[in-house]
Design a binder for these strands. Structure first.
Length: 588
DNA sequence: TGCGGCTATTG
DNA sequence: CACAATAGCCGCAG
């Protein structure tokens, strides 16, 4: 065991571990850390300071690509003061290659070794499995000090938080992660028809690190502004239950006074609202806003109800309780982030970060001395379609800033028609004006349309799909036995739409994440901090003095990303980038 | 208490 | 009113 960080660095260098080489790490604060790579297996014992010093030294001087079982390891490293820039995240790559969301070590190991999932031993990740581990089978499953059991599965207790770690066990655990990562890498490199599979795997790994940043850092939000806006929409903050009930009653009354039986109507109950509308002479199958919108003039209860819905929504989902729960004393709004959503692979966020009403966005404000660089990708989905399908004619349309205008000219229709037609084709729309224009689209862009229809056919048949970057989209278990037989056709159609769209949404997510992690990596030295990712939009906080530089970096990062990711150099992508004080500020 | 349905918000 | 997500409340089954 090397004594001290300098000695450790020397040992690693002596074994040939250099910049960018895979080096696996497993660490438990106050216990130790294990490192593995290039045939090396190193165990370091020590308290948090000792571990922190070793990690810092290796990261700074060796600059490896850290191999992690999952980003939880990166979170521990961050707590110890080492914020890593790149990694190979075994769990993230498993989700990419295997589809689905579960990616605990036992499952990853089982898939790579061809062990059927239904033989996985019991664990908190798999509560339904036969209880062989914690009951009687320890004897039958060999030496507990060996992480691999005689039956080939990983011992699930090795991955448990309650497992009393030793530095030696951590080194073994790291060695297994390294082995798995090497297999994953070979597997992705072997995907002959997915030349970007390795590139995307590295980007997805880095995206997990970005998610840690986003969760820890949060979104700058000015509390005073937020409270002012809330007061405007839902009234002042209440300080007692009676107060709150009174405020609620007053809000309800604005609607109920239009109804003779209003006293006993619960506006939160769709069925009772339907009855209320019936008394006003309005018969509707449901009470959604878009359905009631055309009837605002038929009876005063309708506009009152729509206004009530708006305020009720703001008060319950984005009211003072939401603010108190998620906005920290430091003025940062924090939620949980996931790097991929289990479907097509977009990032997700909780705490309202992805669906905050536009009316609250003025409260999202850069901190003193800082600005936001806000950038969003224009018309990313049809551009992605042009890229991944290789449709030369659609690629020609991407050369224009406004793709839909070009499509409209080609099709000889209005721009609005062209837009709904293109979007409808990507979503699988079968009715309305978009569907009518589909024939024109097929004639003008046969390659792109065939790409979508091929995906739809595969999906309808229940076969898994694979995005351009090599994300598997599981169709095999997609809602097959939850509805009666009568709906078989509509379920097949739904699967078709889902699959058709997943190929586009998924590839767009790959491109977006690669862009985001490139900005993250390049922006560090300028003090740029990504504070929000929103599917096609990046919000970066930067020191005001570096605003122009960061804005240029964001644009350069996009072109670099496109150059590396896109299969078709002729397809153009563009970002609308602006420097603003508030998220809501006008572009420019 | 858990879960599906309804509703609203975002890209 | 298609594709994806998070989230709250209601009504019903257990």
């Amino acid at each position: 065991m090397p004594t001290g960080p300098a000695a450790l660095v020397e040992v690693l260098a002596g074994a040939g571990v250099g910049k960018g080489d895979l080096l696996a790490v497993a660490v438990v604060a106050e216990v130790g850390l294990g490192l593995a790579g290039h045939g090396l297996e190193v165990a370091i014992e020590g308290d948090a300071d000792v571990l922190a010093a070793h990690l810092r030294a290796v990261d700074a001087e060796v600059q490896p690509r850290w191999v992690l079982w999952s980003s939880r390891t990166a979170a521990v490293m961050r707590q110890l003061g080492t914020d890593i820039g790149s990694c190979w995240d075994v769990a993230a790559v498993h989700r990419l290659t295997g589809g689905g969301w579960r990616a605990d070590p036992g499952r990853v190991w089982a898939r790579l070794h061809g062990l059927p999932p239904d033989t996985l031993p019991a664990s908190p990740q798999r509560p339904g499995a036969p209880l062989d581990l914690f009951t009687m089978a320890d004897r039958d499953q060999g030496d507990p000090e060996q992480p691999v059991r005689p039956d080939g599965h990983l011992r699930p207790d090795w991955d448990q938080p309650g497992w009393v770690a030793t530095p030696e066990r951590l080194a073994r655990w790291a060695a297994l992660a390294h082995e798995v990562a090497t297999q994953q890498m070979a597997e992705r490199a072997a995907l002959a028809d997915r030349p970007k599979a390795l590139l995307v795997a590295r980007a997805e790994s880095a995206a997990e690190l970005l998610c840690l940043d986003l969760a820890a850092g949060g979104l700058p939000m000015d509390r005073a502004t937020a409270e002012t806006l809330l007061a405007e929409f839902v009234g002042p903050r209440t300080h007692s239950d009676a107060d709150a009930a009174e405020q609620r009653r007053r809000r309800d009354d604005e609607v109920l006074r239009h109804d003779p039986h209003g006293r006993n109507v619960d506006l939160r109950s769709p069925a009772q609202v339907k009855s209320l509308l019936r008394r006003a002479g309005i018969e509707v199958p449901d009470t959604r806003a878009w359905r009631l919108e055309p009837m605002v003039d038929t009876h005063p209860v309708v506009p009152a109800l729509l206004a009530w819905r708006k305020a009720e929504r703001m008060a319950t989902a984005f009211g003072y309780a939401w603010l108190d729960e998620h906005l920290g004393a430091d003025g940062r709004l924090r939620g949980d982030w996931t790097g991929c959503d289990g479907a097509a692979g977009r990032m997700t966020a909780s705490a309202g970060l992805h669906n905050m009403p536009a009316e609250l966005r003025p409260a999202v404000m850069a901190e003193p001395g800082h600005v936001f660089v806000r950038a969003d990708l224009g018309q990313i989905e049809p551009r992605v379609l042009a890229a991944v399908s290789g449709d030369e004619e659609l690629a020609r349309a991407t050369r224009s800033d406004d793709l839909y205008a070009g499509v409209a000219t080609t099709l000889g229709v209005e721009r609005d028609i062209a837009k709904v037609a293109v979007l409808g084709a990507m979503y699988g729309q079968t009715t309305g004006r978009g569907a009518q224009a589909l024939a024109g689209l097929r004639a003008a862009y046969p390659v792109a349309i065939e790409y979508l229809e091929q995906a739809e056919r595969e999906a309808r048949a229940g076969r898994d799909l694979c995005t351009f970057g090599g994300r598997r989209v599981r169709m095999s278990n997609q809602g097959d036995h939850d509805l009666p037989e009568v709906d078989a056709r509509s379920r097949a159609a739904a699967r078709g739409r889902y699959g058709r769209n997943a190929m586009i949404q998924g590839a767009a997510a790959e491109l977006f994440k690669m862009w985001a992690v490139t900005v993250r990596a390049r922006g560090v030295t300028l003090g740029a901090e990504i504070v929000l990712c929103l599917h096609d939009e990046l919000l970066v906080q930067a020191p005001a003095s570096a605003a122009a530089e960061v804005a240029a970096l964001v644009d350069d990062a996009l072109q670099e990303t496109v150059h590396r990711w896109s299969p078709a150099p002729s397809v153009r992508f563009l970002a609308d980038t602006s420097i603003v004080a508030r998220w809501s500020d006008a572009k420019g």
